[in-house]
Amino acid sequence: MNLKNLKKIFTKTALSLALALTISFTVPMASLQAEAAYYSVTPISAVLLSCNGTEVFADADTTTFVKTLAVNTPVQVTGQTSNGFWQVSLDGGIYYISQQALSVAANTTAVRFTSYDVNAALVANAASGKIIYSQGANDKLEPASTTKIMTALLVIEAIEAGQLTLDTPVLTSATAVASLPSDASHVEPRLQAGEILTVDQLLTAMMVSSDCQACNILAEAVAGSVSNFVALMNARATQLGCVNTNFTNPSGYPDKNMYTNAYSLYLITANAYAHPLFKQYFGMASAVLPATNMCAAPRALVNTDALVIPGSAYYNPYVVGGKTGTANRAGQCLVTVASREGKTIITVVLGGKNRTMYDGTVKSSRYYETNRLIELGFANYW
């Protein structure tokens, strides 16, 4: 078969699979599983390249995993199964590879079935605390702005203790904003020294638009200084049972000395989500900060989490809240809570990237893999 015809077959197959996923991401990735008796094979002779994460199976069934191929390995295709696999010849034997895991182009990424395309992944039953799935969940990694979940928890606990109220006005100090570079602000125009906002407005700026300056301002309001607040963060993490965790600032702004892991972020989030006030800010898709003494016009805020934005390619109607984090070393991070039919789960992904997939589309693994984890969590809830 010539390359032109193969590309037609591959493109048609890829588009069909993409359409199926677009119509309903709620179909588990394990839906490719099938007993040998239930599929047929159409003979094809061609060579395709393995993708990053291409998995090899003994049969056209994702429960028969054998190994993962190195990226860009030429693979001799001998057939196409009716249930979504390539039949291939490898090492003198016949094996099977998902049609979402071989490509006509080099340096692409496969849809994975036995793992997730992030450095660490976890999904847990929010009610029982049972871990449904984990991958590298105890590996020491940078959390980026998922750190803000801990900051929000401490602020909300201070409110519940009567130390602050949502209406408490807070003066933005020079020290709160001077220590952060311009890319740490996600409010336009950025907050200024001398500006007065309420605790409610600062929590909104922090959780919706992931503003780092709001974190410092709140830290000073709660503990008198950012350093004092960081000490509270680490003490609280220890109380919650977090391990391999060290916070150095309240915002998650990149610092090689700040680290945690997926399991510890799950513990922090599970505790925070038990507070009704936390839920109020965790799930906001958008908000507006009213005019202040130093900003005459309202500021519009949009959540940095694509899962909660209707119309987004990654929108998931079951997601009730989440917090993103992005930095060069940390990669793409995301902590999410989703609920369906009385089942509530918490997912954590750390170290994701933007990927060019097997079919040429570009996906954010942070969102793509979180949606897979959510479905896995609901399907295996216990």
Rank of each mutant, 00 (worst) to 15 (best):
A205Y: 01
T147E: 03
Q100V: 13
Y95D: 02
A178F: 08
S179L: 14
P189K: 13
T168I: 04
N107K: 01
V118Q: 10
C215G: 04
S185P: 05
I217V: 12
A126C: 11
V111G: 00
V199Y: 12
A161M: 10
V88G: 15
E188N: 11
N216W: 00
A178W: 10
N107S: 12
T165M: 05
V104S: 04
M150V: 11
A101G: 13
T108A: 07
M150T: 10
V199L: 09
Q192Y: 13
Q80R: 12
M150P: 11
M206Y: 08
D139L: 10
G162E: 09
A205W: 02
T204I: 10
W86G: 02
S173I: 06
T172D: 04
A144M: 11
F85S: 01
G92P: 10
N138D: 14
Y133F: 12
A205M: 14
A110K: 00
A137Y: 03
T114K: 05
I159W: 01
S173V: 07
G194A: 11
E195F: 06
L164V: 12
R190N: 11
T151F: 13
A121V: 04
A101T: 01
N83V: 14
L171I: 11
A161G: 07
P143G: 05
F85H: 04
P143H: 10
A144W: 03
V123G: 00
F85P: 03
L102V: 13
S210N: 13
P169M: 09
I94Y: 05
A144D: 04
S185D: 06
G84K: 12
T175Q: 08
Q135I: 03
H186W: 09
M207Q: 10
A137I: 01
I217K: 05
S209K: 14
A144K: 11
S182Y: 15
S82T: 15
D167V: 11
P169W: 13
P181V: 07
L166A: 06
N83E: 03
L122R: 07
A106D: 11
